[in-house]
Simulated scan of single mutants.
Amino acid sequence: MQKVKSGLVAAAAAGALATGIMPAGAAEAPTPTVERITKFLNSAAPSDTVDAAAPCRKAITRFNYTGYRACGEGRVMDVDWDRNGSVDESFVIAPNREIWHIWANSRGWKELPGDGRGDTFWGWSKYGRVRCVAVWAGSTVWDNPFDGSRWLGWERGTC
Protein backbone atom coordinates (compact mmCIF):
# COMPACT_ATOMS: atom_id res chain seq x y z
CA MET A 1 0.00 0.00 0.00
CA GLN A 2 2.89 2.40 0.80
CA LYS A 3 4.28 1.98 -2.76
CA VAL A 4 0.89 2.92 -4.21
CA LYS A 5 0.66 6.07 -2.05
CA SER A 6 4.21 7.07 -2.98
CA GLY A 7 3.45 6.51 -6.65
CA LEU A 8 0.28 8.62 -6.45
CA VAL A 9 2.11 11.45 -4.68
CA ALA A 10 4.87 11.42 -7.32
CA ALA A 11 2.31 11.36 -10.14
CA ALA A 12 0.38 14.26 -8.60
CA ALA A 13 3.59 16.29 -8.17
CA ALA A 14 4.63 15.60 -11.76
CA GLY A 15 1.17 16.58 -12.97
CA ALA A 16 1.33 19.85 -11.06
CA LEU A 17 4.69 20.65 -12.64
CA ALA A 18 3.46 19.80 -16.11
CA THR A 19 0.39 22.00 -15.79
CA GLY A 20 2.30 24.94 -14.34
CA ILE A 21 0.62 24.95 -10.92
CA MET A 22 2.71 26.92 -8.45
CA PRO A 23 2.64 26.56 -4.68
CA ALA A 24 0.68 29.10 -2.67
CA GLY A 25 2.60 32.32 -2.27
CA ALA A 26 4.75 31.75 -5.34
CA ALA A 27 4.67 34.33 -8.07
CA GLU A 28 6.34 34.84 -11.41
CA ALA A 29 9.14 37.39 -11.52
CA PRO A 30 7.87 40.86 -12.40
CA THR A 31 8.72 42.30 -15.79
CA PRO A 32 11.75 44.61 -15.50
CA THR A 33 10.77 48.25 -16.01
CA VAL A 34 12.77 51.44 -15.58
CA GLU A 35 10.83 52.18 -12.39
CA ARG A 36 11.49 48.74 -10.88
CA ILE A 37 15.17 48.81 -11.82
CA THR A 38 15.54 52.31 -10.41
CA LYS A 39 13.85 51.16 -7.20
CA PHE A 40 16.32 48.25 -6.90
CA LEU A 41 19.27 50.53 -7.58
CA ASN A 42 18.16 53.12 -5.06
CA SER A 43 16.74 50.98 -2.26
CA ALA A 44 18.85 49.26 0.33
CA ALA A 45 17.73 45.72 1.01
CA PRO A 46 18.27 44.58 4.60
CA SER A 47 21.45 42.52 4.57
CA ASP A 48 21.03 41.09 8.06
CA THR A 49 17.81 39.18 7.40
CA VAL A 50 17.61 35.55 6.39
CA ASP A 51 15.04 34.30 3.91
CA ALA A 52 14.14 30.60 3.88
CA ALA A 53 14.21 30.75 0.08
CA ALA A 54 17.51 32.67 0.01
CA PRO A 55 19.39 32.62 -3.28
CA CYS A 56 22.50 30.55 -3.73
CA ARG A 57 25.75 32.00 -2.38
CA LYS A 58 29.41 31.04 -2.70
CA ALA A 59 32.32 32.03 -0.49
CA ILE A 60 35.01 34.15 -2.14
CA THR A 61 38.35 35.14 -0.64
CA ARG A 62 40.36 38.14 -1.79
CA PHE A 63 43.17 39.93 0.07
CA ASN A 64 42.80 37.36 2.92
CA TYR A 65 39.15 38.26 3.61
CA THR A 66 36.19 36.01 2.83
CA GLY A 67 32.84 37.31 1.64
CA TYR A 68 29.90 35.85 -0.27
CA ARG A 69 28.82 36.25 -3.85
CA ALA A 70 25.78 35.12 -5.80
CA CYS A 71 26.09 31.86 -7.72
CA GLY A 72 26.45 31.88 -11.49
CA GLU A 73 28.58 33.56 -14.11
CA GLY A 74 29.41 37.26 -14.12
CA ARG A 75 29.14 37.78 -10.35
CA VAL A 76 32.88 38.41 -9.77
CA MET A 77 35.08 41.03 -11.41
CA ASP A 78 38.79 41.23 -10.60
CA VAL A 79 40.29 44.51 -11.81
CA ASP A 80 43.90 45.37 -12.62
CA TRP A 81 43.57 49.18 -12.63
CA ASP A 82 47.23 49.86 -13.40
CA ARG A 83 47.53 46.94 -15.86
CA ASN A 84 50.61 45.46 -14.23
CA GLY A 85 49.28 41.89 -14.15
CA SER A 86 48.02 41.81 -10.54
CA VAL A 87 44.54 42.30 -9.12
CA ASP A 88 44.15 45.74 -7.52
CA GLU A 89 40.47 45.51 -6.59
CA SER A 90 37.75 42.86 -6.69
CA PHE A 91 34.01 43.39 -7.05
CA VAL A 92 31.23 40.89 -6.36
CA ILE A 93 27.47 40.82 -6.67
CA ALA A 94 26.05 39.43 -3.44
CA PRO A 95 23.08 37.03 -3.31
CA ASN A 96 20.79 40.01 -2.48
CA ARG A 97 22.18 41.89 -5.56
CA GLU A 98 24.25 44.36 -3.51
CA ILE A 99 27.63 45.23 -5.02
CA TRP A 100 30.67 44.81 -2.77
CA HIS A 101 34.36 45.46 -3.33
CA ILE A 102 37.73 44.92 -1.67
CA TRP A 103 41.27 46.13 -2.27
CA ALA A 104 44.64 45.51 -0.62
CA ASN A 105 44.33 48.02 2.25
CA SER A 106 40.55 47.99 2.72
CA ARG A 107 40.62 45.73 5.81
CA GLY A 108 37.65 43.75 4.51
CA TRP A 109 34.77 43.77 2.06
CA LYS A 110 32.90 47.08 1.67
CA GLU A 111 29.57 47.77 0.00
CA LEU A 112 30.11 49.95 -3.06
CA PRO A 113 28.66 53.41 -2.27
CA GLY A 114 25.44 54.45 -3.99
CA ASP A 115 23.16 51.56 -2.92
CA GLY A 116 23.47 49.95 -6.36
CA ARG A 117 22.05 46.56 -7.24
CA GLY A 118 23.13 44.35 -10.09
CA ASP A 119 22.62 41.00 -11.77
CA THR A 120 25.97 40.60 -13.57
CA PHE A 121 28.99 42.75 -14.28
CA TRP A 122 29.21 44.55 -17.60
CA GLY A 123 32.85 45.61 -17.20
CA TRP A 124 35.25 48.27 -16.03
CA SER A 125 37.36 51.07 -17.45
CA LYS A 126 39.89 53.69 -16.42
CA TYR A 127 40.45 57.08 -18.05
CA GLY A 128 43.19 59.08 -16.32
CA ARG A 129 42.30 59.12 -12.62
CA VAL A 130 38.66 58.15 -13.18
CA ARG A 131 37.87 54.49 -12.61
CA CYS A 132 34.48 53.05 -13.45
CA VAL A 133 32.54 49.81 -12.94
CA ALA A 134 29.33 48.86 -14.73
CA VAL A 135 26.67 46.24 -14.03
CA TRP A 136 23.64 44.82 -15.76
CA ALA A 137 20.44 45.32 -13.76
CA GLY A 138 17.58 43.73 -15.63
CA SER A 139 18.10 44.77 -19.25
CA THR A 140 19.90 48.04 -18.48
CA VAL A 141 23.57 48.81 -17.87
CA TRP A 142 24.39 51.13 -14.94
CA ASP A 143 27.81 52.55 -14.12
CA ASN A 144 29.42 54.12 -11.06
CA PRO A 145 32.59 56.18 -11.63
CA PHE A 146 35.28 56.83 -9.00
CA ASP A 147 37.04 60.19 -9.44
CA GLY A 148 40.08 59.40 -7.31
CA SER A 149 38.47 60.48 -4.04
CA ARG A 150 34.85 59.24 -4.08
CA TRP A 151 32.29 57.15 -5.97
CA LEU A 152 30.04 59.52 -7.93
CA GLY A 153 26.87 57.40 -7.96
CA TRP A 154 24.99 55.13 -10.31
CA GLU A 155 23.85 56.39 -13.69
CA ARG A 156 22.42 54.67 -16.71
CA GLY A 157 25.02 53.81 -19.32
CA THR A 158 28.49 52.37 -19.67
CA CYS A 159 31.82 53.65 -18.47
Rank of each mutant, 00 (worst) to 15 (best):
T66F: 04
E89A: 03
G25V: 06
Q2I: 09
E98V: 05
T19P: 00
I102K: 03
P46I: 07
D119W: 09
D51N: 14
D119R: 08
V9K: 13
D48E: 03
P23A: 15
Y65E: 03
S90H: 02
C56A: 12
W136V: 15
I21D: 11
E28G: 11
I37W: 04
G74I: 10
N64I: 06
V50R: 13
P23V: 15
K3Y: 07
V141R: 12
A45L: 12
M1D: 12
T61I: 08
K39Q: 12
I37R: 04
P145V: 03
G108D: 00
R150S: 06
T33N: 07
R75W: 01
I37D: 09
D88Y: 00
G157R: 09
C56W: 10
R156F: 06
S6M: 15
R75L: 01
A12E: 02
P30Y: 04
Y65R: 04
F40N: 09
L41Y: 03
W109T: 02
C132S: 14
G85P: 00
V130I: 11
K5R: 11
T66C: 06
D82S: 07
A134N: 06
A26M: 15
M22T: 13
R75S: 10
Y65P: 00
V135R: 01
S106D: 00
G157Y: 08
E111D: 14
A45D: 04
G25M: 09
W81L: 02
T38M: 13
